[in-house]
Every structure is written in C-alpha cells, then in structure tokens.
Amino acid sequence: MRLEVVKAFRDSTGEMLQQIVGPVDDVAAMAMHPTPLAGREVTTVIAVDGEARGRVTLDMDSATAMRLAGRLLDEPPAMMTPLAESAIAELASMIIGHAISTINDQGRRVRMEPPVIGDGGLACAEVCFETLTFPVQTPFGEVRVNVMIHDLD
C-alpha cells in the first residue's frame, strides 16, 4: 500500500470525525495485520475500485454505535433502528469519500461504492488483503477504520 494512500485514509479519519462528532484523539497508533480483522458488532463496508482495489471498513461496538447515532440524529435512539444504522453508514461514507477525494486530487483514479452496514461477519472476505487499522478514540467510544486495499501499480 502506498504511503500517500495510507496517509489520505489516516488524515481523513481524524478530520472527518473531528468535524462530525467532535474532538478525537490523534490518529497515531496504526497497526498492520496480514489478513482482514474480524469486524466488531457494527461494521460498515465500502468497496474501493480503480487504481487501488479492495475494501475499507469502519467498525465499533454496539454501545458506541448507539451513542454516535444519537449524536448524528440529535436524539439517542432507543435501539439500532434503520435510520440509526444509516447514520453510521453515512459517517463511514464521509470518511472514505473524503480520503478518496484526496487520493484523486493527487492524480490517482480510485472510485468507491455505496456503504453496506451489518455485523462483524461483513468484514470477512474471500480475498485476503493485509489490513491497516486506525483505532480512534471519540467522545462516544472507539471507532476503528480498517483499510484493505491492494495497490495495482
């Protein structure tokens, strides 16, 4: 994975979470895993295609998802409703979309698909990519962004 791609995802994660949900810790502790990690209870998957191909996932535990959805909806949901799930999926979409915009402005051609949200099983893939993980501590709990992208050049 090229450094500028990794940096775009890391920077976007911090910037977007800061803008959307409030102060977050620095996104400093990246970890590389040889295969995809099992997703946590609420996992959003976004497929990426073009000059870099793979998937990016955003995962968190249920309590964090409920609190984040409450922040986005301005009202804590009593349960994980379809609207609350949609709010979490849109949060992932904004983080990844912002990163993809930066990558494209650097001259590479990368596209994204609409987000799909579900449980941790969504993180399983037939094709194993190494996974770069950024855990971020937000005021609502930990959010983890997992980048599984294969560079095509």
């Binding site: 977007m16 979409s93 979309g97 993809i100 915009s101």
Partner: peptide, 25 residues
C-alpha cells in the same frame, strides 16, 4: 452534495448541469 469532492468530480457535476457543489458534511 457529496463527500466525493475532488476537482475532476466537481467539474463533471457542473458539466452535467449542476449549478453548484457542496462537500459533505
């Protein structure tokens, strides 16, 4: 209104007929 706000995409949207472009959020 999109999170995909790179230069080429904005130009493409305006060329398609959009009057303006706002990046999410």
């Amino acid at each position: 209104i999109s999170s995909l706000s790179y230069h080429e995409k904005v130009e493409e949207a305006l060329a398609a007929g959009a009057r303006c472009f706002v990046a999410k959020p």
